Amino acid sequence: MANTQDSAFDGGYFDEEMSVEVVNSRIGSAADPRLKEVVSILTKHLHAAVKEIEPTHEEWFAAIRFLTETGHMCTDWRQEYILLSDVLGVTMLVDSINHRRPSGATPNTILGPFYVEGAPHYPNGANICLDQKGEPTLVRGRVMDVDGNPVEGATIDVWQTNDDGFYDVQQKGEQPEYNLRGVFKSDADGRYWFQTVKPRFYPIPDDGPVGKLLGDLARHPNRAAHMHFIVTSEGYDEIITHIFTPDCPYLKEDTVFGVKKDLVANFQHIDDPKMAEDYGMPNPFLLADWDFVLARKTPASNG
C-alpha cells in the first residue's frame, strides 16, 4: 500500500500514489513541447491502468513477452504492431480523428496493407476481374461535392480480394497481376462505372502473437466483405474508404473495426437483359450504386 502520510509531491522520490507526477517531472525543459505532452498523457493513463489492474509480476512479464514477440514478427512486408493497433480499434480511431468532414461527405476508413501503386488505368465500364471467379457485379455511381455538383475527372482507385478471399499480391503466380485492381476517371457528369465481382470476407494474418491474442479473447480474425477505394480530385480532400456488402456475417464484427454504417452498400440482384447488354454484363448480375461525396480542402487539410 502507498504511504499516504504525506501525499504531496515533493520531488523525485518514487511514491505509488504520486507515480505519474514523479515520472513526468523527469521530462526536461528542453524537450519538444508536443513530445512532452504526448509522453505525459501516455504515462498518466498507463499508470492509471496498472493501478486499476494491479498485475502480478508474472502477468507483467507476460505482457513484456507479448510485445517482444510482436516486434520479432515484424518484417519489411509485415507489420505486426500495425495489426495490433488495428484489432484494438486504435487505427480506426486515429483515422476518424484525422478525417472529420462536413455532414454528407463520404467517411474514411483504413487503407489496409494490400494497396499497390500503379494499377492499370481503365475506361469506364471495364472489367477488373481477370481470374473470372465470383458473382458478376456492376459498380456505378457519381463523384460529387457536398452541394451535389458533379466532380469531373476525379480518380477512383479500386482494389479487392478475389472470390477465394485473397488479394493478388498474396497469390503471386496464382492470380493474374493486378487482378481486381483498377483506376477510373469520372466523366463530365461525375459518373463512373466498372465491372467486378462481389467481394467476400477474409481473415487477417493470425499466425502471430496478435492472432493468438484474438484467440485468447475468443475473437475471430475475419474482415467484413468489402471493396477498397481511394478517390482524389484537385482541391478536395482525398477519400480512403471501403464499401461493404450488407449480407456479410461479419458486418458488425469486423476484426479491425473498419465498418461504418454509412459505408454499407446495397448489392441488388438484377435480372434485366437490356440493362445487362447496355453495360456489357452477363445476365443476371449484382448492382451496387454508390456515390462518393468530396469535401473541399481547408487550410488545415492542406497541411
Rank of each mutant, 00 (worst) to 15 (best):
N162W: 03
N162C: 00
N162P: 02
N162G: 02
D163A: 14
D164R: 04
D164W: 06
D164N: 10
G165H: 04
G165P: 09
G165Y: 04
G165V: 05
F166K: 01
F166A: 03
F166E: 08
F166N: 03
F166T: 01
Y167K: 03
Y167A: 00
D168G: 10
V169W: 06
V169Y: 00
V169M: 10
V169K: 11
V169G: 08
V169A: 05
Q170R: 08
Q170L: 08
Q170W: 04
Q171A: 13
Q171E: 04
Q171L: 06
Q171R: 05
K172V: 12
K172F: 00
K172T: 04
G173F: 02
G173L: 01
G173H: 05
E174F: 04
E174H: 07
Q175H: 13
P176F: 01
P176C: 05
P176Q: 09
P176Y: 03
E177S: 11
E177W: 00
Y178S: 08
Y178R: 05
N179G: 01
L180R: 02
L180H: 01
L180P: 02
L180N: 07
R181Q: 10
R181H: 11
R181S: 09
R181D: 05
G182C: 07
G182N: 09
G182S: 10
G182V: 06
V183T: 13
V183M: 06
V183C: 14
V183G: 09
V183H: 14
F184N: 05
F184E: 06
F184D: 10
K185A: 15
K185G: 15
K185I: 13
K185Q: 15
S186C: 08
S186A: 11
S186I: 06
S186L: 06
D187G: 13
D187V: 12
D187C: 11
D187Q: 13
D187E: 09
A188F: 09
D189C: 14
D189Y: 13
D189E: 14
D189P: 14
G190P: 08
G190S: 13
G190H: 13
R191G: 12
R191D: 12
Y192C: 05
Y192K: 08
W193H: 13
W193K: 12
F194Y: 12
F194W: 11
F194C: 07
F194R: 02
F194Q: 09
Q195R: 15
Q195C: 11
Q195A: 11
T196V: 00
T196D: 05
T196G: 00
V197Q: 12
V197K: 10
V197T: 15
K198T: 15
K198E: 10
K198G: 06
P199W: 06
P199F: 03
P199S: 08
R200F: 03
R200V: 15
F201Y: 15
F201N: 15
F201W: 15
F201H: 12
Y202Q: 01
Y202V: 00
Y202A: 00
Y202N: 02
P203C: 04
P203E: 03
I204L: 07
I204T: 02
P205S: 02
D206G: 15
D206I: 13
D207L: 04
D207K: 14
D207T: 12
G208T: 12
G208H: 11
G208M: 04
G208Y: 09
G208V: 08
G208C: 10
